[in-house]
């Protein structure tokens, strides 16, 4: 994080891996040429742009990350059905609310992931981030118990993200 001047050969291993994956999926083939070209691009782009990415991502627990991804996908499906019912149901009964979620996460990237997850799981949309005061403002479509919802978001989404990305660098 501190050595901006010294160039590393592989500045962002996770990003490189991700780019190679995207390249292979986009070219829709697993031929040798695609591996070669994708591998070159996945090395070259992070290498030549590394001064724009001062924070390096470290993933501590890849298995937990996969579990988290599956959990979020499942939540998206379940919550989508719930919100569809809410939208088609009697609209006078909806109880919208703003919630302030105090953040324990420190890194920009992890906070972005949390905000994206909250917006993707329907029923809640993150609308404002106050970094100074350390909270994320979230609007809920139908919230019966504000405190319980905040606690659920924190335990269900924030804690796994914290474990996956931030445990080793406090």
């Amino acid at each position: 994080m501190t050595s901006f001047a010294r160039k590393k050969v592989f500045p962002h291993k996770l990003l490189s891996l991700f780019m190679l994956g995207v390249w292979l999926v986009m070219s829709n083939s697993l031929g040798f040429g695609q591996w070669l070209l994708g591998g070159f691009l996945a090395w070259a782009i992070p290498f030549f742009t590394q001064s724009f990415w001062p924070q390096s991502m470290v993933m501590n627990k890849p298995w937990l990350a996969i579990r988290f991804l599956l959990l979020v996908l499942w939540d998206i499906v379940v919550a989508n059905a719930q919100v569809a019912v809410l939208i088609m149901g009697p609209r006078q009964k909806l109880q919208p609310a703003f919630m302030r979620i105090p953040l324990e996460l420190k890194q920009d990237f992890t906070i972005t992931l949390l905000a994206n997850t909250i917006s993707l799981t329907p029923g809640t949309v993150s609308v404002d981030l106050q970094m100074n005061e350390g909270y994320l403002l979230v609007h809920g479509l139908h919230v019966t118990d504000v405190d319980a919802t905040i606690a659920e978001i924190k335990s269900r989404y924030e804690r796994p993200l914290k474990e996956i990305f931030e445990c080793s660098n406090p």
Binding site: I87, V125, L141
Partner: peptide, 16 residues
């Protein structure tokens, strides 16, 4: 849906 912030929830459903 009645107000702006509630309407914000609609499009996020359609995309997911």
């Amino acid at each position: 849906l009645q107000d702006f912030f509630m309407r914000l929830h609609g499009p996020t459903k359609a995309t997911t």
